[in-house]
Design a protein around this nucleic acid. Structure first.
Lengths: 240, 240
DNA sequence: ACCTGAACACCGTTCAAGT
DNA sequence: ACCTGAACACCGTTCAAGT
């Protein structure tokens, strides 16, 4: 028997990208460095550069990986995509689009770092384009003009992919006596904000979800937009 | 005459933060390093740490600077905030909120790097809270319940501050024969997307704005949301 | 063709030392 | 109280060298 080295799985772009996703999932996007990534695949940092151009290329790659997960998840939604047997009033498009967007959101909930990375990419990944292509197809089948569909995509923005940039974030954790008191103390500086929060908390005192239920709020905003779009479609909206 | 050193403006947190904004404005957020920042204020990098805790503190600080600009811009909008002389149908709230949001958007257009930084902050800046407080006050004056106002803030998301995460970005630059041909070539992979884009381009062939007019699209999405909220308010929407 | 060691030019940050 | 020089532990990336 000749001297034999460990039968190592050869490096590949795919293996590098999947390892990158794993690192971000397990330790956050901050832990994703070229050296840490090399360690994960059992190689030296410099070996990575044979399979990816630079770190930016890794980030484009993980975006594509996540986007592919989204396309797959959306594709699994059993709603007819061609609209052939839809109700005559065209209302089915909304359910089809809504369920695909919520499926996309499910993917981002499993990769919490991913929304931030998507925001930094300058080129749009092919898988993201395929996902948007599917949404556009559903809206067209539902009776939308190309022009209104175009506006719709912009109106939805990142919400079409299942996430939003939340800048209005009441304190984490459950509603407690202490946090309520802390809010009340700011009443002179932010009278309307504190008024709103204390009433919202009062309405649902035994809430275990904390101040805001992210899922409900996402669906509220999504439905608001989809309902508005449906109304424009039904009214025969024209460009102006 | 005794030997005299140059009368240097003493360092201060404010001076550091304003210099940071200037660097990001002039050279992008990537150019904002502690060493570069020190150079800008005419000191050594380590001197900064007497005035800011760490780089994260600098980013919190510039967020506060930009947010203060937004509050100021919104405050300059001459719309009665207390609703005392508003139309009985309450429709004035929408104009007041809309104009403030567009004023906020104007600030982000002057600091293109800022939206990205806002997205990375974990704590909400006091100035952002003041801005939201103002919006909430306007909606309350317009007849919104606390509960619907709360949902409204979540529905608007970052759009309330004047920016959106655009993931659907058709090619930059003007619509040319070449770019149209490039789009047509992808028709087999993205049939709905290419169909939409070629028709949108065809409808406005001499557009100098390129594929999409960002300002119009922002206003379309904003109005869609505001109109939907106004409808819910008029219908006496209740939590469910 | 694939992988690596040594090295370069950067980072943010600590710490002891200066005035 | 305010500022600094030297140093540390990291980055991403290049390049010549190995198999």
């Amino acid at each position: 028997m000749p001297a034999q080295t460990e039968p190592r799985i050869p490096l590949s772009r795919d293996r590098v990208l999947l390892a990158a996703v794993k690192i971000a999932d397990d330790h956050g996007i901050g832990a994703l460095t070229m050296r840490r990534l090399a360690e994960e695949v059992g190689a030296e940092a410099m070996s990575l550069y044979y399979h990816v151009a630079k770190k930016d290329d890794v980030l484009d790659g993980v975006t594509e990986v996540i986007a592919t997960e989204i396309v797959d998840a959306a594709g699994r939604i059993a709603v007819p995509a061609d609209g052939s047997d839809w109700k005559a009033d065209g209302s089915d498009w909304k359910k089809a689009v809504r369920e695909r967007i919520l499926a996309a959101r499910g993917v981002f909930l499993q990769h919490k770092w991913a929304a931030g990375v998507f925001g930094t990419r300058t080129t749009t990944s092919p898988a993201v384009l395929r996902y948007y292509d599917g949404l556009i197809g559903l809206m067209r089948a539902g009776g939308f003009s190309h022009d209104l569909t175009h506006h719709a995509m912009h109106a939805l923005g990142s919400r079409a992919l299942g996430f939003t940039q939340e800048l209005f974030t009441p304190p984490d954790g459950p509603v407690t006596e202490e946090s309520l008191a802390a809010i009340a103390q700011m009443a002179d500086v932010y009278p309307h904000l504190t008024g709103m929060l204390s009433e919202v908390a009062h309405d649902d005192p035994e809430s275990t979800l904390g101040w805001c239920d992210d899922q409900s709020e996402f669906e509220f905003g999504l439905d608001l937009i989809l309902d508005g779009l449906d109304r424009l479609r039904a009214e025969g909206w024209q460009a102006h």
